[in-house]
Structure formats: structure tokens, C-alpha cells
Design a protein around this nucleic acid. Structure first.
Length: 260
DNA sequence: ATGGTAGTGTTACTA
């Protein structure tokens, strides 16, 4: 199975490019983030025409997560138990969707950005990650030998080498110790990152501004965490950097994972 | 030079 994760930054603005990627790359299952639309606005027809079914969770023009697959999708879940809320009035955001495909439990995740260390959104981000860890501990306890993939835009650079200039991030989100610790704590639920060893030095995101992509000033923030049973089946991974090129590109590139 | 781009219910907000 070829599984990919991609923050598409609006599926409606990029549907042709996303479908072309699916067909070109031989991707069986694509987890998308930042679809930026409600369910009734999702461009299902273009995916169906290419032979993919889609499950989508979108509540507004913000966030939005989906899984497209040419294998059957089962047991779809919008959000996970205990997921924190945001805003006034407090409400769950569309940042997680899960489905079982080919025996693998796949979650497409869009972790809150955090905005700034002193911003309430940063606490929301940490709480969201802690709640995800608690949910994952439950999944592990229920099925210790299960194949689980948590993929998406984590909005965290786990290591200093995952940003082009760590000094430029002093006092900023994405690299702070609490964020990195919240991500690392998912290890308690048996989850490990499976793409890094195949993609050393690769970035997955480059800001639209300041010529970040031409200068390769990027960040590795799109990650794939896997349960032990699934991690043992990962045979390769790559970042499809070409998808960041040209007119109409997302600011993220797809991360592709091959599973035996 | 405290900007710069791109997306959305666009003239405000999110990233």
C-alpha cells in the first residue's frame, strides 16, 4: 500500500493538482489536511472519476481533513474522543478524521498551529496533543497488535535540523520544548515516526513568502507516526518536492510512505 | 525596509 499525507491548503483551489498527483504517484490512500471547505463543498466528483472514494470532515472555511482511497474505507470517525474545543462558543474543529483501509487504521490530523508561545492557541495545541496521546493509549490497549498510522501536519519540527535556521525560530512555536515533548510523548502509545530515516534532511513545508522554497528554507512538520505492527512494514518514504513547484502549489509537499 | 503570499463567508483573519 502506498499511503501519502498532504496539507493541500484548499482542496477546491487545487483539486486538479491533487488528483493528478494521485494518478501520477500511484498513491492508494491520501490523507489531506486544510481542505478549507464544508462537507457539502468538497469536490467529490473529481476524486470519484479518478477511482477514489473520499471521506471528509469539514465545518467551515478553516481546517478540514479528508482521506481519499482506491481501497474501501470503513469505520469512519470525525474527531477523536476527548479532543479539545476552541473558540467562543467553544466547539470542536475539523482537525481529525479516521478510517480503516486495507486493515490499517489511518488518521488524517491537522494539529493546531499555536500561533505564538503566549497565545491561548498554544495551550490549545498542547492540550490537543495531550488528548491525542490519551486517545492513542486507548487504541493501543484495545488492539496492541493493530496497524495504526497517524499522519498529517503536526505543526512541530521535532529536531533543530528540521528547520533551515533554528536561530530564526528563537521564541517561536513549532520548535519549543513543550511542543516537541508533547509529540515525543506519543511514543508512550507505541507510536514512532517512520519517514525520517528514508528522507534525511528533507523539508515538507516552505512558506509562500520570502522565496522560502527557491532558497530551500523550509521545515519538516508533516510526519507519519506508526504503531509497532505498522512501522515494521514500512519499506520506504519520500517527499514529493515537485508538488511544491510552479503556479498553484500548496505550501506543503506530499509525504509518501510505502507499506509492505 | 518589521515587509514579503496565498487561501477563505475577503476589505479580516488564518497560516
Amino acid at each position: 500500500m502506498r499511503l501519502a499525507t498532504w496539507n493541500v491548503n484548499s482542496v477546491r483551489a487545487r483539486v486538479d493538482r491533487v488528483v493528478a498527483f494521485l494518478e501520477r504517484s500511484g498513491t492508494d490512500v491520501l490523507a489531506m489536511q486544510e481542505t478549507k471547505c464544508r462537507d457539502d463543498q468538497f469536490p467529490h466528483l473529481a476524486f470519484h472519476a479518478a477511482g477514489y472514494e473520499v471521506v471528509h470532515h469539514g465545518l467551515s472555511q478553516w481546517n478540514g481533513v479528508a482521506i481519499a482511497s482506491r481501497l474501501p474505507l470503513e469505520d469512519v470517525a470525525a474527531g477523536f474522543d476527548g479532543m479539545p474545543t476552541w473558540g467562543e462558543p467553544a466547539a470542536a474543529e475539523a482537525r481529525a478524521i479516521g478510517a480503516t483501509v486495507g486493515g490499517v487504521r489511518v488518521w488524517s490530523l491537522y494539529v493546531p498551529n499555536g500561533r505564538a508561545l503566549e497565545d491561548p492557541h498554544y495551550r490549545y495545541k498542547l492540550d490537543w496533543l495531550a488528548a491525542l496521546r490519551a486517545a492513542a493509549l486507548g487504541w493501543q490497549a484495545a488492539d496492541p497488535a493493530g496497524a495504526v498510522a497517524l499522519v498529517g501536519d503536526w505543526n512541530i519540527a521535532p529536531l533543530d535540523e528540521d528547520v533551515w535556521d533554528v536561530a530564526a525560530f528563537a521564541g517561536a512555536t513549532h520548535v519549543s520544548a513543550p511542543e516537541r515533548e508533547a509529540l515525543a510523548a506519543l511514543r508512550d502509545a507505541g507510536l514512532t515516526e517512520v519517514t525520517r530515516r528514508f528522507t534525511p534532511g528533507a523539508y515538507t513545508y516552505w512558506d509562500y513568502k520570502q522565496l522560502r522554497f527557491p532558497r530551500n528554507e523550509g521545515m519538516r512538520i508533516d510526519l507519519a507516526l506508526a504503531s509497532p505492527a505498522l512501522a515494521a512494514r514500512v519499506t520506504g518514504a519520500h517527499v514529493d518536492r515537485d508538488e511544491r513547484k510552479g503556479k498553484g502549489a500548496s505550501d506543503h509537499a506530499p509525504v509518501v510512505i510505502d507499506i509492505d
